[in-house]
Design a protein around this nucleic acid. Structure first.
Lengths: 262, 262
DNA sequence: GTTGGTGTTCGGTTCCATCGAACATCTGTT
DNA sequence: AACAGATGTTCGATGGAACCGAACACCAAC
């Protein structure tokens, strides 16, 4: 923590903390931010001024908030992941078929990130939004992704992030995780029964394409609906089929690199 | 330029330049970035390392690129502008009716920013994308927005950004601009005939709602189709009607503040 | 082996980010 | 009106760290 950040620019780190603070507080003033981040007002003021002058922030009657530059970069990143473009329509079909919430997800920095959601008619309200990061080992989609990774890769992630327990069902043992991953790899899909959130279960299938970011598609719903017969054949089939369709579409998509123009 | 940035954090400015550089180059390595930005390699390296450690960047076989954090913030900003949510369906209707390209746009930092696009069946390829910033005085939507602003506000913008000429048709005289804005305010819509791009003309109407960001909706197409009879009644009517619908929907939308959960 | 390209590490110097305190501004309260 | 308690802003001194060049390590290609 302290030994290896010798080469980092601490002023930048503070600026990033401020941006995140504004995001967390959904807009804030200087003093409010300073309190929230435990920084001197004047320091916050300097950073905010800098970010504002660079047009990364806007003011809304006194409060600062994130500006459209982030919209620009966000859309850029979305285009970067052609997986999102291609997978979204399939995700919506799957949401319609199952009636549940469907998510597209990817791995980044050893964590699971939600990037797209589609809600079926019965979909429950969830705490997931585009950009939300969660531990890979505690979700069906995370395990689905990990099942397609070399064991060393998995171990690296465990070293970096550990296996934090989120519910009583979370896998916290490395060996058990590896064993499950092997099973998941064989059967082609992963299940999460209240391993990240009490009362919520998921089924997910990996979408692995050469040269693409590791990703997955998952169905989430109340534990009462994701169990028994549904888990026997129905849901796994639907999810793995959807993943397969996306995988093929990505593989045979136009190979031209994404472009930013419309 | 040099006199008043005493209070800015220059390290942050370089970090932002690097982020923009990566965006411009659509991913880049350290040396490439250093050349592009005319900075020492080691400086770039430190900043990139910082941004990478903070998980704002990812690596793609050697090249650095923007990460999903920007997707998260981008979606946050999109939600912040409920105008986009509400206006998009109307924009798509308008695109269908006209067959042309329709844009939703807002003012930020004295410039016009595209935030949403919808393409009709005949829509021409354009250089506009979400986040693209252009001078307000050289576009129909910009003039539509300015027509609803106090004259002092317009003058402030002229002071800050000038009236740069983009084509031979661009308005470069402040008095002429003010005169046009008055006319636009009266008739309720603005026209741009090749003032920003050769061969492209636009019609736009402002969407002004108390307490909301200044915004507009516009139709763009080849000059050959945006002229004559179309400009007489058809297009202006369609555009102003669409703007009116959006305005009403925003005004009477649920007044609850936007929330980040789904 | 050599060349030219990467990314990385390493210190010295100097600049500037930091921080507390003082100042300014505004709101609402009594 | 004067005040109290917020806010945002400015200021200046100090020490830390951002910057930069140079040296290093690495890799690929000819």
């Amino acid at each position: 923590m302290t030994s290896d950040d010798i080469v980092t620019v601490s002023a930048t780190e503070t600026s990033l903390r401020i941006v995140e603070g504004i995001h967390d507080l959904q807009g804030a003033g200087i003093s409010e931010l300073a309190r929230h981040l435990d920084l001197p007002k004047s320091t916050v003021h300097n950073h905010v001024r800098t970010l504002y002058d660079a047009e990364y922030l806007v003011t809304n009657d006194g409060d600062y908030d994130l500006g459209l530059r982030f919209l620009e970069f966000g859309d850029y990143v979305r285009k970067y992941h052609q997986f999102i473009q291609i997978g979204s329509s399939e995700a919506e079909k799957l949401a319609e078929q199952t009636g549940e919430r469907v998510n597209l997800t990817v791995e980044e920095h050893g964590r699971g990130v939600y990037v797209f959601k589609a809600n079926g008619s019965e979909a429950v309200h969830m705490d997931t939004y585009a950009g939300k990061r969660v531990p890979l080992h505690a979700t069906a989609f995370g395990k689905a992704i990990l099942s397609q990774c070399p064991a060393t890769f998995v171990d690296d992630i465990i070293d970096r992030h550990g296996l934090p327990s989120l519910t009583s069902q979370t896998i916290t043992d490395a060996d058990e995780l590896h064993a499950q991953l092997e099973m998941i790899d064989e059967q082609g899909y992963a299940v999460d029964q209240e391993e990240r959130l009490e009362g919520v279960s998921c089924v997910a299938a990996p979408i692995v394409v050469e040269g693409e970011v590791r990703s997955a598609i998952s169905v989430s719903g109340p534990k009462s609906r994701i169990q028994g017969d549904a888990l026997g054949t129905e849901l796994p089939d639907l999810v793995t089929n959807a993943a397969e369709v996306v995988r093929i579409n990505i593989t045979y998509a136009d190979q031209n690199t994404f472009d930013t123009s419309w």
